[in-house]
Amino acid sequence: MYSRIAGTGSYLPEKILTNAELAQRVDTTDEWIVSRTGIRQRHIAAEDQRTSDLALIAVERALEAAGVDKSEVDLLIVATTTPDSIFPSTACTLQNKLGVHGFPAFDIQAVCAGFIYALSTADQFVKSGAAKCAVVVGAETVSNLINWEDRGTCILFGDGAGAVVLTASEEPGILATQLHADGRYSGILKTDARPKQGELVGDPYVYMEGNAVFKFAVKALAEVAESTLAKAGLQKSDVDWLVPHQANIRIIESTAKHLHMSMDNVIVTVDMHGNTSAASIPLALDAGVRSGKIQRGQTLLMEGIGGGFAWGSALVKY
């Protein structure tokens, strides 16, 4: 038994924050941001929008695309760094908003690698027979963690949600996944804050050592791409589309170069929504599918890396 992606969906909040608008708040320019990151704008959740609200719309669109009724879902996993609350999990909150109940629903926290971690977990459930129809969501309101006076981070992040529906199939779908983590690097990309007796202890904003993160990401993503292909018994030339975490155009270009892939075969959406953490890969996937670029039967390589460090990849026959 295999798990296959039956449908995709996504949602971006209505409010758009452009580079020009950011340049009015911090010492930067549109040209500077685009040349170093590839980002032109990002979406920001409304004051009354929580992570589960963004996720709900993405899930409803994915279910519609899959032709699956919500009553058929028997597993829900939400990858998020920005949950609605400490508990209950955002997955339980989302399950309630969907109007379904009883089946397992839980969150996974692996920051920008969260969607790959969640997809791999759901794949194990389906392959083992523990689930027949799983919904996997990456959803974030990262803007809540941003110091809008920090030029190094405020230009990078945005909000959004993406979802996929996985169904059991006798035909191969998810061919191979690889997950990794190394906590020795936790200090260079983090948000330290924790609640204690009604107060936040530690820095509540995203902290990042950009150059160190870049160097580690380029090496780790190249290695995990190779190991995942080897696990599936495929070559670089077998990949039709690279669907990477949308963090920085330079990292994306480096990964494509390592795979000997033209950028024409890379789904790039970082310019339109910036780094949406766990939401960025399913957002890019849905954009590729709905644009008609990604077709049934093609082979996709999805990969991402985030704080932890946690990283991973998934090779998929779409």
Results as ranks from 00 to 15, higher is better:
Thr121Asp: 04
Ser291Asn: 08
Thr167Phe: 03
Ala91Asn: 08
Ala66Gly: 00
Gly292Leu: 01
Ile281His: 15
Lys219Asn: 12
Pro195Ile: 02
Phe216Leu: 14
Gly202Met: 05
Pro244Ala: 01
Asp53Ile: 05
Leu145His: 12
Asp53Ala: 00
Val213Pro: 06
Ile16Arg: 14
Pro104Thr: 04
Gly162Trp: 11
Ser186Glu: 03
Asn144Gln: 05
Glu199Gly: 14
Glu72Lys: 13
Ala212Thr: 14
Asp84Ala: 12
Ser3Ile: 02
Ile116Tyr: 01
Leu259Arg: 15
Phe115Cys: 06
Trp241Cys: 11
Ala46Glu: 01
Thr29Met: 07
Leu242Ile: 06
Ala176Thr: 10
Glu199Ile: 14
Ala212Lys: 15
Lys15Arg: 15
Leu259Ala: 12
Ile44Glu: 00
Ala91Phe: 09
Ala222Phe: 14
Ser291Ile: 05
His101Gln: 01
Ser128Pro: 05
Gly308Cys: 09
Ser71Pro: 10
Gln49His: 14
Thr93Pro: 13
Gly67Leu: 06
Ser237Lys: 15
Gln235Arg: 13
Gln235Lys: 15
Leu259Trp: 11
Pro83Asn: 03
Val111Ile: 09
Leu156Lys: 10
Lys215Cys: 03
Val239Gln: 12
Ile267Glu: 05
Ile281Ala: 07
His43Met: 00
Leu200Gly: 02
Trp241Asn: 06
Phe125Trp: 08
Leu54Asn: 06
Lys236Asn: 15
Leu175Ser: 07
Ala45Gln: 04
Val111Pro: 08
Ser237Asp: 02
Glu47Leu: 04
Tyr205Asp: 07
Ala278Trp: 11
Ser120Lys: 12
Arg36Ile: 07
Gly102Ala: 14
Ile251Cys: 15
Leu300Ser: 09
Asp192Val: 12
Val201Trp: 13
Cys92Trp: 09
Asp74Cys: 07
Val213Leu: 04
Asp203Trp: 09
Asp84Lys: 14
Ile281Tyr: 07
Ile146Val: 13
Glu14Gln: 13
Phe309Gly: 04
Glu170Leu: 12
Ala58Thr: 06
Thr18Gln: 06
Ala284Asn: 02
Arg296Ser: 07
Asp238Trp: 12
Glu60Pro: 02
Ser280His: 13
Met1Tyr: 09
Leu259Asp: 03
Ala181Met: 09
Gln109Tyr: 11
Asp203Leu: 09
Ile155Leu: 09
Arg151Asn: 02
Val270Trp: 00
Ala122Ser: 05
Glu170Asp: 08
Phe115Gln: 07
Val26Asp: 00
Ala314Pro: 10
Asn144Cys: 07
Asp271Leu: 08
Asn147Ala: 10
Leu300Ala: 04
Gly114Trp: 02
Leu56Thr: 10
Trp148Cys: 14
Ala131Glu: 00
Ser277Lys: 08
Gly210Thr: 15
Pro88Cys: 13
Asp240Val: 06
Gly202Glu: 00
Lys15His: 11
Glu64Ser: 13
Val213Thr: 05
Gln178Trp: 00
His273Cys: 04
Phe87His: 14
Val142Ala: 14
His260Trp: 02
Ile249Leu: 11
Arg42Tyr: 01
Leu300Trp: 13
Arg25Ile: 06
Ala122Ile: 01
Ser262Val: 02
Gly7Thr: 00
Val213Ser: 02
Gly312Thr: 08
Trp148Lys: 14
His260Glu: 12
Asp271Lys: 15
Tyr318Val: 10
Gln41Cys: 07
Val266Met: 01
Ile116Met: 05
Trp148Glu: 08
Gly9Val: 06
Leu301Trp: 08
Phe216Met: 14
Ala225Asp: 08
Gln298His: 03
Ile305Thr: 13
Pro282Ser: 05
Gly9Met: 02
Thr80Trp: 11
Asn147Tyr: 03
Gly274Lys: 03
